[in-house]
Protein backbone atom coordinates (compact mmCIF):
# COMPACT_ATOMS: atom_id res chain seq x y z
CA UNK A 1 0.00 0.00 0.00
CA UNK A 2 2.82 2.41 0.83
CA UNK A 3 4.58 1.36 -2.36
CA UNK A 4 1.49 2.27 -4.30
CA UNK A 5 1.08 5.65 -2.61
CA UNK A 6 4.81 6.28 -3.18
CA UNK A 7 4.32 5.52 -6.85
CA UNK A 8 1.30 7.79 -7.00
CA UNK A 9 3.23 10.56 -5.28
CA UNK A 10 6.11 10.22 -7.74
CA UNK A 11 3.67 10.29 -10.63
CA UNK A 12 1.94 13.41 -9.31
CA UNK A 13 5.29 15.13 -8.64
CA UNK A 14 6.31 14.24 -12.19
CA UNK A 15 3.13 15.83 -13.54
CA UNK A 16 3.78 18.96 -11.44
CA UNK A 17 7.35 19.09 -12.81
CA UNK A 18 6.20 18.82 -16.42
CA UNK A 19 3.51 21.42 -15.74
CA UNK A 20 6.07 23.84 -14.27
CA UNK A 21 8.39 23.31 -17.23
CA UNK A 22 5.65 23.97 -19.78
CA UNK A 23 4.35 26.93 -17.74
CA UNK A 24 7.78 28.55 -17.67
CA UNK A 25 8.18 27.97 -21.41
CA UNK A 26 4.87 29.81 -21.90
CA UNK A 27 5.76 32.69 -19.53
CA UNK A 28 9.20 33.20 -21.09
CA UNK A 29 7.60 33.22 -24.53
CA UNK A 30 4.73 35.53 -23.70
CA UNK A 31 6.94 38.15 -22.01
CA UNK A 32 9.75 37.78 -24.56
CA UNK A 33 12.19 37.11 -21.73
CA UNK A 34 14.53 35.20 -24.05
CA UNK A 35 14.03 37.45 -27.05
CA UNK A 36 12.07 36.96 -30.26
CA UNK A 37 13.38 33.46 -30.97
CA UNK A 38 11.54 31.94 -28.00
CA UNK A 39 7.83 31.68 -28.87
CA UNK A 40 5.19 30.85 -26.26
CA UNK A 41 4.19 27.17 -26.11
CA UNK A 42 0.64 27.96 -27.28
CA UNK A 43 1.97 29.58 -30.48
CA UNK A 44 3.97 26.44 -31.26
CA UNK A 45 0.98 24.20 -30.56
CA UNK A 46 -1.26 26.33 -32.76
CA UNK A 47 1.37 26.15 -35.49
CA UNK A 48 1.62 22.36 -35.24
CA UNK A 49 -2.17 22.01 -35.33
CA UNK A 50 -2.61 24.38 -38.28
CA UNK A 51 -4.38 22.38 -41.03
CA UNK A 52 -2.42 24.15 -43.80
CA UNK A 53 0.83 22.72 -42.35
CA UNK A 54 -0.55 19.20 -42.12
CA UNK A 55 0.98 17.84 -45.33
CA UNK A 56 4.35 19.44 -44.55
CA UNK A 57 4.54 17.82 -41.12
CA UNK A 58 3.05 14.52 -42.24
CA UNK A 59 5.70 14.11 -44.94
CA UNK A 60 8.54 15.06 -42.62
CA UNK A 61 7.25 12.87 -39.77
CA UNK A 62 6.77 9.88 -42.07
CA UNK A 63 10.28 10.20 -43.48
CA UNK A 64 11.90 10.58 -40.06
CA UNK A 65 9.79 7.86 -38.54
CA UNK A 66 10.77 5.40 -41.26
CA UNK A 67 14.44 6.29 -40.72
CA UNK A 68 14.14 5.84 -36.95
CA UNK A 69 12.29 2.52 -37.20
CA UNK A 70 14.58 1.13 -39.91
CA UNK A 71 17.74 2.21 -38.12
CA UNK A 72 16.46 0.99 -34.75
CA UNK A 73 15.39 -2.37 -36.17
CA UNK A 74 18.64 -2.99 -38.02
CA UNK A 75 20.69 -1.83 -35.03
CA UNK A 76 18.83 -4.04 -32.55
CA UNK A 77 18.99 -7.15 -34.74
CA UNK A 78 22.65 -6.64 -35.66
CA UNK A 79 23.62 -5.85 -32.06
CA UNK A 80 21.95 -8.97 -30.65
CA UNK A 81 23.21 -11.15 -33.51
CA UNK A 82 26.84 -10.05 -33.20
CA UNK A 83 26.82 -10.31 -29.41
CA UNK A 84 25.49 -13.87 -29.78
CA UNK A 85 28.15 -14.62 -32.36
CA UNK A 86 30.81 -13.39 -29.94
CA UNK A 87 29.33 -15.68 -27.31
CA UNK A 88 29.23 -18.75 -29.51
CA UNK A 89 32.48 -18.21 -31.41
CA UNK A 90 34.64 -17.13 -28.48
CA UNK A 91 37.69 -16.83 -30.75
CA UNK A 92 36.05 -13.86 -32.45
CA UNK A 93 35.04 -12.11 -29.24
CA UNK A 94 38.18 -10.02 -28.44
CA UNK A 95 38.51 -8.85 -32.05
CA UNK A 96 34.80 -8.09 -32.27
CA UNK A 97 34.89 -6.08 -29.03
CA UNK A 98 37.85 -4.03 -30.21
CA UNK A 99 36.46 -3.37 -33.67
CA UNK A 100 33.14 -2.24 -32.25
CA UNK A 101 34.84 -0.03 -29.64
CA UNK A 102 36.90 1.64 -32.37
CA UNK A 103 33.84 2.25 -34.53
CA UNK A 104 32.05 3.69 -31.52
CA UNK A 105 35.00 5.99 -30.76
CA UNK A 106 34.43 7.79 -34.07
CA UNK A 107 31.79 10.50 -33.50
CA UNK A 108 28.62 9.68 -35.42
CA UNK A 109 28.56 13.26 -36.71
CA UNK A 110 31.93 12.72 -38.35
CA UNK A 111 30.64 9.62 -40.12
CA UNK A 112 27.56 11.31 -41.52
CA UNK A 113 29.32 13.08 -44.44
CA UNK A 114 31.04 9.79 -45.31
CA UNK A 115 27.69 8.01 -45.50
CA UNK A 116 26.41 10.91 -47.57
CA UNK A 117 29.05 10.45 -50.25
CA UNK A 118 29.46 6.69 -49.97
CA UNK A 119 25.81 5.63 -49.77
CA UNK A 120 22.46 6.83 -50.97
CA UNK A 121 21.73 10.15 -49.24
CA UNK A 122 18.26 9.09 -48.21
CA UNK A 123 19.58 6.04 -46.41
CA UNK A 124 22.06 8.11 -44.36
CA UNK A 125 19.63 8.90 -41.48
CA UNK A 126 18.70 5.24 -41.00
CA UNK A 127 22.34 4.18 -41.29
CA UNK A 128 23.55 6.60 -38.62
CA UNK A 129 20.67 5.63 -36.34
CA UNK A 130 21.46 1.94 -36.89
CA UNK A 131 25.13 2.45 -36.01
CA UNK A 132 24.36 4.17 -32.71
CA UNK A 133 21.65 1.68 -31.76
CA UNK A 134 23.86 -1.24 -32.75
CA UNK A 135 26.62 -0.23 -30.33
CA UNK A 136 24.17 0.22 -27.46
CA UNK A 137 22.51 -3.17 -28.04
CA UNK A 138 25.80 -4.99 -28.60
CA UNK A 139 27.15 -3.79 -25.25
CA UNK A 140 23.87 -4.52 -23.43
CA UNK A 141 23.54 -8.02 -24.90
CA UNK A 142 27.18 -8.87 -24.27
CA UNK A 143 26.90 -7.95 -20.62
CA UNK A 144 23.47 -9.60 -20.37
CA UNK A 145 24.79 -12.91 -21.67
CA UNK A 146 27.15 -12.93 -18.68
CA UNK A 147 24.37 -12.13 -16.22
CA UNK A 148 23.37 -15.70 -15.30
CA UNK A 149 24.43 -16.44 -11.72
CA UNK A 150 27.17 -18.91 -10.83
CA UNK A 151 24.59 -21.07 -9.01
CA UNK A 152 22.42 -21.29 -12.13
CA UNK A 153 25.44 -22.21 -14.24
CA UNK A 154 26.35 -24.94 -11.74
CA UNK A 155 22.84 -26.37 -11.93
CA UNK A 156 23.02 -26.51 -15.71
CA UNK A 157 26.44 -28.16 -15.60
CA UNK A 158 25.26 -30.72 -13.06
CA UNK A 159 22.18 -31.46 -15.18
CA UNK A 160 24.49 -32.14 -18.11
CA UNK A 161 23.32 -29.26 -20.31
CA UNK A 162 24.78 -29.00 -23.79
CA UNK A 163 26.20 -25.57 -24.78
CA UNK A 164 23.16 -24.94 -26.98
CA UNK A 165 20.69 -25.79 -24.20
CA UNK A 166 22.63 -23.67 -21.74
CA UNK A 167 22.52 -20.76 -24.16
CA UNK A 168 18.83 -21.03 -25.01
CA UNK A 169 17.46 -21.94 -21.60
CA UNK A 170 19.77 -19.98 -19.30
CA UNK A 171 21.97 -17.35 -20.87
CA UNK A 172 19.48 -15.87 -23.30
CA UNK A 173 16.58 -15.53 -20.82
CA UNK A 174 18.99 -14.18 -18.20
CA UNK A 175 20.16 -11.58 -20.74
CA UNK A 176 16.64 -10.31 -21.50
CA UNK A 177 16.47 -7.60 -18.81
CA UNK A 178 19.78 -6.13 -19.98
CA UNK A 179 18.76 -6.34 -23.64
CA UNK A 180 15.46 -4.58 -22.92
CA UNK A 181 17.25 -1.85 -20.93
CA UNK A 182 19.59 -1.40 -23.87
CA UNK A 183 16.59 -1.18 -26.21
CA UNK A 184 15.10 1.54 -24.01
CA UNK A 185 18.29 3.61 -23.96
CA UNK A 186 18.70 3.09 -27.70
CA UNK A 187 15.41 4.92 -28.50
CA UNK A 188 16.85 8.45 -28.11
CA UNK A 189 20.01 7.28 -29.87
CA UNK A 190 17.94 6.23 -32.89
CA UNK A 191 16.28 9.67 -32.97
CA UNK A 192 19.60 11.51 -32.67
CA UNK A 193 21.07 9.37 -35.45
CA UNK A 194 18.14 9.91 -37.78
CA UNK A 195 17.94 13.68 -37.17
CA UNK A 196 21.70 14.17 -37.54
CA UNK A 197 21.63 12.12 -40.73
CA UNK A 198 18.83 14.30 -42.12
CA UNK A 199 20.75 17.47 -41.23
CA UNK A 200 23.41 16.49 -43.69
CA UNK A 201 21.06 16.79 -46.59
CA UNK A 202 18.39 14.13 -46.75
CA UNK A 203 15.60 15.10 -49.14
CA UNK A 204 12.92 15.12 -46.43
CA UNK A 205 12.41 14.60 -42.72
CA UNK A 206 12.16 16.54 -39.46
CA UNK A 207 15.95 17.10 -39.36
CA UNK A 208 15.82 18.74 -42.78
CA UNK A 209 12.83 20.79 -41.65
CA UNK A 210 14.82 22.03 -38.65
CA UNK A 211 17.80 23.08 -40.75
CA UNK A 212 15.73 24.87 -43.33
CA UNK A 213 13.54 26.56 -40.67
CA UNK A 214 16.68 27.72 -38.87
CA UNK A 215 18.29 29.08 -42.00
CA UNK A 216 15.10 30.86 -43.07
CA UNK A 217 14.34 32.18 -39.59
CA UNK A 218 10.99 30.35 -39.42
CA UNK A 219 10.98 30.29 -35.64
CA UNK A 220 7.57 28.62 -34.97
CA UNK A 221 8.37 25.96 -37.60
CA UNK A 222 11.74 25.23 -35.99
CA UNK A 223 10.21 24.88 -32.53
CA UNK A 224 7.39 22.75 -33.89
CA UNK A 225 9.85 20.29 -35.43
CA UNK A 226 11.83 20.11 -32.19
CA UNK A 227 8.64 19.62 -30.20
CA UNK A 228 7.47 16.76 -32.42
CA UNK A 229 10.83 14.97 -32.26
CA UNK A 230 11.08 15.36 -28.50
CA UNK A 231 7.51 14.22 -27.87
CA UNK A 232 7.88 11.12 -30.06
CA UNK A 233 11.22 10.17 -28.54
CA UNK A 234 9.86 10.59 -25.01
CA UNK A 235 6.69 8.65 -25.82
CA UNK A 236 8.64 5.67 -27.19
CA UNK A 237 11.11 5.87 -24.33
CA UNK A 238 8.19 5.74 -21.88
CA UNK A 239 6.73 2.76 -23.70
CA UNK A 240 10.04 0.91 -23.50
CA UNK A 241 10.31 1.78 -19.79
CA UNK A 242 7.02 -0.02 -19.32
CA UNK A 243 8.28 -3.06 -21.24
CA UNK A 244 11.47 -2.92 -19.18
CA UNK A 245 9.54 -2.94 -15.93
CA UNK A 246 7.48 -5.95 -17.06
CA UNK A 247 10.65 -7.79 -18.10
CA UNK A 248 12.40 -7.09 -14.81
CA UNK A 249 9.34 -8.26 -12.93
CA UNK A 250 9.44 -11.55 -14.74
CA UNK A 251 13.11 -12.24 -15.32
CA UNK A 252 14.80 -11.15 -12.11
Amino acid sequence: MTARSDGLQRFLLGLVGIGLFLGMWQVIGVYRLAGLTWPPLTDVLVFVADPSKRTLFARAITASFIAVVTGYGIGVIAGIALAMLGRVATVLKPGLDRLIAVIHAIPLVALAPLFMVAANRDSTPASIAALGVFYMIYVATTSGLNAASAAHRDVFTALGASPVTRFLRLELPAALPDIVSGMKLAIPVAFIGAIVGEWFGASRGLGLLMVSAMQNFQIPLLWSAVLIVTASSLALFGLMSLVERLTYGRYQ
Binding site: H152, V155, A158
Partner: peptide
Protein backbone atom coordinates in the same frame (compact mmCIF):
# COMPACT_ATOMS: atom_id res chain seq x y z
CA UNK B 1 21.80 -31.39 -7.12
CA UNK B 2 20.28 -28.90 -4.71
CA UNK B 3 22.27 -26.03 -3.26
CA UNK B 4 21.84 -23.63 -0.37
CA UNK B 5 20.96 -21.03 -3.00
CA UNK B 6 17.86 -22.72 -4.43
CA UNK B 7 18.99 -21.64 -7.93
CA UNK B 8 15.48 -21.86 -9.38
CA UNK B 9 15.10 -19.95 -12.63
CA UNK B 10 13.15 -16.79 -11.72
CA UNK B 11 11.43 -16.60 -15.10
Amino acid sequence: VAFQDHALLPW
